[in-house]
Design a protein around this nucleic acid. Structure first.
Lengths: 328, 328
DNA sequence: ACAGAAATTGTTATCGGTAACATAAAGAGC
DNA sequence: GCTCTTTATGTTACCGATAACAATTTCTGT
């Protein structure tokens, strides 16, 4: 930049201004500078700009898993929405582990993101401290944290399950089993489990049986192996309430293979309204969460933060709705 | 960093060395420094490091779509493998469009990545020029480009389809239909289509009928709507060769709803060996691609590039294998 | 012609690390 | 005891752009 400045007989400051389309520079000067920069093969160093201005143009995002249609959809919405503002997403995947999240947040914060979007509302103490210390706007999504770090766009996984349980009870189902991850790592999954237990209790049902599908993340194959391990014992239940649609599909497919009729012999429900739930045969009863809208809402929240400041922390509660399928 | 240095009574240089695991600092000192940094909530500013060392620590990656189990798996493998080298992934999604890829590459290169990993082997001229000019190591994955930009880790989507067609022909199937995206945007999908057409011709089969599932990306619901649009006409085929497993599942589910028996009345095949193919009922015949290995191979290639230089461009061809399911 | 506003350009310090070199302290060999 | 390594730490000068402020020139209106 110094060389360019020398070539046009101006200071580096003027060159800097000319290249950034700053209004205060003479149009003729700007033209000269651009011409000179071009002909000298000068390449603007955005690294230095990031360093000096302390504006990275990044928004950091953590997701439990990239390979999840719903999270991917939220990510897409975020990406599209923030692109207009010239912001780029820095993605990290926590694998449903808060310790991994902590490590990730450390890495991501080191890049000086202008905002931080965390999926989930449970974090280690160290993570909380890091985020607070960084002084970066935070949005927690896909959950309603008990003690939010900042803004929130989410829903209650616990409450959402009452939709499912009420629906099943309305059909006269009483002996429920919950199929989900065994360890406590997937905290949204755990909230769903507790929601089912509480809702069943509220209806005076017998205790919900917990069927272990292995450590998080659980997917179709874990639904399958959980049911296979159970064998014919599965017949004692009249509904399999699954932590997610992929797990539900695994269960559905497996009980069908065992010769049971769904929904006549047993009901199966999922969560998330994944594509597989709509296309499967029979279609799976599930809960719809508007993943795209979560992303869009987070984007508009961020806009407010960047523009005005909007200093009060906002909590947007998204609605969930039952999608009645053919498995119940 | 100055504060941390003061806290432990050392210079910033020592702190810097301690945090970077430089061998020349005393282990005890390092422990103290790390402890102090931790407790003070100090966050390392890699922006400054990037600036000073002129090394961004980024590897840029483009994927057609994040919401695809196979690409996600490759991404995960890349992410895990490069984490050890202290490299972070910068992800962009092209939505199966080369124009979007161009825009993305421009954005990504502005961050001075140390390498560029592009999914797919077809690019606009401008993209090619950008990449060449940047002088960054490139790896193209998931494809075998006719004119590679640099290293390649992929397979021939065209050739892979002969596995499927040979298998179907071996069962006496002769009237094939290919279900895929109509537009040419998904070039891997188009290569698969051409592969099916060529393989069918080689066997002397009647012309393959092309069933349009809409613009890329196509998924379960597009398989469903394509078959629904066809109605009972679908009965004229004895095999539906689908561009991917999700599409195959959509077709499978829909022909079953129409009362047809799979594989007795019609065969259905997919591509990619997605989880849904294994769990579906019947399990879908497909082609397995080791998405994880593609990522791992790319990582080890990058290691070589960074370490030695390994200047000759390498082309690693991954194998594909038929996974015989119950739909054929 | 001249004060005051507006338009342009310049000066200086700095963002937070780290390379390169300099120095100090501890151990080794005679 | 003294030199020679080895190990551990400190000093200084940056990396390249830009914010904040200062200074200069050019334009107004009277």
């Amino acid at each position: 930049m110094r060389d360019v400045a020398r070539a046009v007989g101006k200071s580096t400051m003027t060159v800097s201004r000319a290249l950034r389309d700053d209004q205060t520079v003479n149009e003729q000067t700007r033209a000269q500078v651009k011409q000179a920069a071009q002909s000298m093969g000068y390449v603007y160093d955005s690294t230095a700009q990031v360093f000096r201005t302390q504006k990275s143009g990044f928004v950091a995002v953590t997701l439990p898993s990239v390979n999840n249609a719903n999270f991917a959809e939220t990510f897409r919405a975020l990406s599209n929405g923030l692109e207009a503002a010239g912001l780029q997403l820095l993605l990290g995947s926590t694998n449903y582990r808060v310790e991994k999240e902590e490590q990730l947040v450390r890495q991501l914060l080191a890049r000086n993101p202008e905002a931080l979007i965390l999926t989930g509302g449970h974090h280690t103490e160290a993570t909380r401290a890091l985020v607070q210390a960084a002084g970066v706007p935070v949005i927690e999504i896909w959950d309603l944290p008990s003690t939010p770090l900042g803004h929130v766009v989410g829903f209650s996984n616990f409450d959402a399950m009452t939709l499912i349980v009420d629906h099943l009870v309305g059909q006269g189902r009483r002996k429920l089993a919950f199929v989900g991850a065994s360890d406590g790592a997937d905290l949204r999954g755990a909230a769903r489990r507790e929601g089912v237990i509480a809702a069943a209790r509220a209806h005076g049902l017998p205790d919900v049986t917990l069927i272990d599908a292995g450590p998080a993340p659980v997917s179709m194959r874990h639904g399958r192996s959980a049911i296979e391990a159970l064998g014919t014992d599965v017949a004692q239940f009249d509904a399999l309430v699954c932590v997610s649609d992929p797990v539900a599909f695994g269960c559905l497919s497996t009980v069908q293979r065992m010769g049971m009729k769904v929904p006549d012999d047993i009901a199966v429900t999922g969560f998330g309204n994944f594509e597989v739930a709509r296309i499967s045969n029979p279609a799976i009863t599930t809960v719809n969460v508007d993943a795209q809208k979560i992303g869009e809402t987070a984007v508009s929240l961020l806009r407010d933060v960047f523009d005005g400041g909007a200093e009060t922390t906002v909590c947007v509660e998204m609605g969930c709705s039952l999608v009645a399928g053919e498995t119940s």
